[in-house]
Design a protein around this nucleic acid. Structure first.
Lengths: 129, 129
DNA sequence: CCTTGACCTTCCCATCATAGGAAGGTTTAA
DNA sequence: TTAAACCTTCCTATGATGGGAAGGTCAAGG
């Protein structure tokens, strides 16, 4: 299977597949005589694992760790759970940060009459009160 | 006032002040004979405006627009309000996305016993079900 | 067998906001 | 006059992704 087909099936772009390989997240796969990468079903599983992990917001470092745990038949489920919990914690922090922004912005927006007049509490706040 | 003092007072690092200048977000300020940037109170206001906008999650493009509106005495408050509302909308979308991640992760984590056994629903999910 | 088009290869560049560092010039206080 | 503290510009990197150029390969049809 070519990289293009692997990309279509796995939902990971060819660009990203090569990138994952370059940073060591994907193993280097077999090549054809002409130098084309050749993918097997096993590699597709790998790619889908990465894609799903990305969609849950894991970073490359975390995915590398998850892949290692995945490959290690004898790991304790505890290590995976801990990693996931830490990731949840990070996400929640970022969410809280953005919610704080939304809250402040909402207050400002609510106080801005939003008509043709130039007076605007939003700019007044940004300018430092 | 040197860039270092301006940085300390405004809370924007010297590095970033130069960067803002280079992308046209800050006006080019006066220089000393030796080439040092010289900042006035007016410039500090500008920097604080940028810093506050950044802390509310506005991107450089949006801040550029806000600064223009700020400088334009005759603009309608409506334009500012609209910009802020669009930004809130963007933030809320990103928040929702991350909350979806947290939700999925929480479900997975709740189903993982997290002990010494290797069996782990989190990895099973990541691997595709 | 040859051509053509679709595909692949590597390499470079860009994003966005921020930081680090190197090499060298300026300012200021002792 | 010298040393320390500061400044200057320029280059590099981050993380994940995409775009594009120059050139090589593969497969199908004539």
């Amino acid at each position: 299977m070519n990289i293009g087909q692997a990309a279509k099936i796995s939902g990971v772009s060819a660009k990203m597949i090569r990138y994952y390989e370059s940073i060591g997240l994907m193993p280097e796969v077999e090549r054809s005589d002409g130098g084309y990468r050749i993918y097997q079903d096993r590699d597709l599983h790998w790619l889908r694992f990465i894609r799903r992990s990305r969609s849950l917001g894991f970073g490359m470092d975390e995915i590398a760790a998850l892949l290692t745990l995945w490959q290690d038949q004898s790991r304790a489920s505890q290590s995976v759970k801990t990693l996931a919990q830490e990731h949840i914690h990070n996400l929640e922090q970022r969410i809280a940060e953005m919610q704080g922004m939304v809250h402040s912005l909402r207050t400002l927006v609510d106080h801005c009459h939003g008509d043709q007049r130039p007076d605007c509490p939003i700019l007044t706040d940004l300018a430092g009160g």
